[in-house]
Amino acid sequence: MTTLPQVRMSVDEYLAWSEANPGRYELVNGEVFAMAPQRMLHAEVKVAVYDALRRGIRAAALACEAMPNGLAVRIDAHTAYEPDALVSCGPRIGPDAVEVKNPVIVVEVASPSTRRTDASEKLTGYFRVPSIHHYLMVDPDRRTVIHHRRAVDGMETAFVHEGTLMLEPPGLELPVSSLFEEP
């Protein structure tokens, strides 16, 4: 069992520490937090989201790549989140990378233990990253997507239950139903 460090860390220190300590963690204001075990429904929806993102990228022939959870997104010098899925465009992410520098889309699949954090701290944190244009909060229990989108004068939010999400940039179309398909 990994003991969480009791000292504040920078993101660089955290990334080095996390490579030597198996498990899922996030760094918030310099403090390491272990992520709770996930339910089967949560895991299935994460797979469906990742698959839908990959299919959408291929269908649109975008120079982007979808990534499942496991890579960090740096919010500031002392905070790094690990979204459930993300999309990065431009140069490919290196094979030894543990961090995605310029994600365009980040996705969190809601769970009872993370719902409040996803809708507050992570929402404001993700939009501090200039490259992030879309933050999708996928609720498997309600089969709803809360789509937060960067806008000229701030942020726009839509609650989507059906239809197609238009994610511009990068020019990705995602049928909402595809985010809930069984793997």
Rank of each mutant, 00 (worst) to 15 (best):
T2A: 06
T3W: 01
Q6L: 12
R8Q: 10
R8E: 08
D12S: 06
Y14P: 03
A16I: 13
A16W: 02
A16H: 08
W17C: 01
E19F: 02
A20P: 01
G23T: 00
R24N: 02
G30Y: 02
E31D: 11
E31W: 04
E31Y: 00
V32R: 05
A34L: 10
M35N: 06
A36C: 10
Q38S: 13
R39N: 11
L41N: 12
H42Y: 13
H42P: 12
A43P: 06
V49Y: 07
V49R: 07
R55F: 14
I57G: 10
R58Y: 06
R58F: 12
R58M: 08
A59E: 15
A59L: 12
A61Q: 15
C64W: 02
C64V: 13
G70V: 05
G70Y: 09
G70D: 04
V73E: 05
V73T: 04
V73W: 02
I75F: 04
A77L: 13
A80V: 11
A80F: 03
Y81Q: 02
P83K: 04
D84E: 09
L86W: 02
V87I: 09
P91E: 11
I93A: 11
G94D: 14
D96H: 14
D96K: 13
D96V: 06
A97P: 08
A97F: 05
K101D: 15
I105P: 06
V107N: 11
P112S: 05
P112L: 03
P112K: 06
T117R: 15
D118G: 01
A119I: 02
S120E: 15
K122V: 03
L123K: 04
G125M: 04
G125R: 01
Y126S: 03
F127K: 01
S131G: 08
S131M: 03
L136A: 03
T144N: 00
I146E: 15
I146Y: 13
I146F: 13
H147S: 06
H148D: 10
R149T: 15
A151H: 07
V152F: 02
G154N: 05
A158L: 07
A158T: 09
L167F: 05
E168P: 00
P170W: 05
L172T: 05
L172P: 08
E173F: 00
P175L: 04
V176A: 01
S177M: 10
S178D: 15
F180N: 03
E181I: 08
E182C: 07
E182H: 14
P183F: 11
